[in-house]
Simulated assay, not measured.
Amino acid sequence: MEHQSNFRLGLFILFALSLGAILLVGLGSGRWWQSKLTLETYFNESVKGLDIGSKVRYRGVAVGEVSAISFTYTRYEDELPNSQRQQYVLVEAHLDDTLFGKNAQGETQQAALNREIAKGLRVKLAPQGLTGTSYLEIDYEPAPFNQPLPFSWQPEHLYIPSTNSTVNQLIGNAQELLAKLQRVDFEKTISLLNQTLMTANQKLDEIPAKTIGQEASQLLRTINRMPLTQIASEGSLLLVEVRESNQALKALLEQTELKSASADLASAAHSAKVLLGDPALASAVHRLDAITLRLDQLSAQGDIQQIIDNLSNASSNLKSLSEKANQRPSSLLFSTQPKPYIPPQP
């Protein structure tokens, strides 16, 4: 009986272990059998803190892990002498196959990556807190910090260029600043600064501060003696007058007579334009020019002056004849003047 109970217990344990293995395989098979992408990149700096199994993040999201860390010359430049080898650190990582989406028909995954690389996609070493460990960060970097490393081989796997880590960028900027500071001639700079301060002191000493203070005090006293209240009141009255003048001008501009005057002026201008464009006016002006030209020609020939002289003489003769007719009308009929009548004497 005891032997049969142990047998059943053993069967139950085997069944439980088998069920657990089946569940474990079923739950993890999707991850185990999921296809991976192999990515490689090169660093020209220390990768201290990065180990196999370190996370790879794309814009902060975990997308894979580091699978291998070595040197580029062990794979691509093994036949070259040490003096000609690139001392780059080769880092390989396994990434999810769905990271970069599906490619266009006939396009390779590297070609799709090259488009993103042209936009600034880079891999850099990022510290993970204060523990001293690091991980790989895939992100887009601005142009000054994303210059890829030069190399002459063809990568075996997908390739994304690397960029200096944030710490190295800070160190590089600090070193560049120190180099610039070393090129600065501090003694000459301090000498020029002292000379500038001495010149400024001399110029300040030359300024008549006492006279300026007295003139400022006098100006303040003059301002205090000014009738500011009266000036303010007159200014207010002036503003009121300006406002009233503005209102009167606005009312004048809004009168219908003024508005119609502009229309009448436009109508008169249109009429004058039509009159000037009339061919009859042009013909009249042409005839007037011809008459004036003819008068000028007659005046130049002397005929007008002779006619005027003859008319003047005829007028004088007519006047003399008229006066003679008024005095002796009979002279118009008889050649000689009749004798005066003498009445007979008784």
Results as ranks from 00 to 15, higher is better:
E2V: 10
S5V: 12
L9Y: 10
L14P: 06
S18P: 02
L19C: 02
L19D: 03
G20H: 04
L24P: 05
G26L: 09
G28K: 13
G28Y: 09
G28C: 14
S29E: 08
W33D: 06
Q34P: 03
L37I: 04
S54H: 01
G60D: 06
A68C: 03
I69K: 00
S70C: 03
F71V: 12
T72I: 05
L80H: 00
L80C: 02
Q84V: 08
L90C: 03
E92W: 06
A93P: 00
A93E: 05
A93V: 00
G101I: 05
N103Y: 09
E107F: 00
E107C: 03
E107W: 04
Q109M: 12
Q109A: 05
A118R: 02
G120R: 00
P127Q: 08
Q128F: 03
D139V: 01
D139R: 04
D139C: 01
E141Q: 07
E141R: 06
P144E: 07
S152V: 00
E156K: 14
E156I: 06
E156V: 11
I160S: 00
V167C: 05
A179H: 13
E187K: 11
K188R: 11
N194T: 07
T196V: 15
T196G: 05
E215N: 12
L219W: 04
L219A: 10
T222P: 07
I223P: 02
N224I: 15
M226L: 15
T229E: 15
I231F: 07
S236G: 11
L238G: 08
L239C: 04
K250D: 14
K250G: 11
L252A: 12
E254I: 04
S260R: 14
S260T: 15
S260F: 06
A268Q: 12
A268C: 13
A272D: 13
L276V: 10
P279V: 01
A282H: 02
V285A: 11
R287A: 12
R294D: 11
L295A: 11
A300D: 12
D303Q: 13
I307W: 02
I308T: 12
I308L: 13
N310T: 10
S312T: 04
A325C: 03
R328K: 15
L333C: 06
F334E: 07
S335T: 10
S335W: 12
S335E: 14
K339Y: 08
K339A: 09
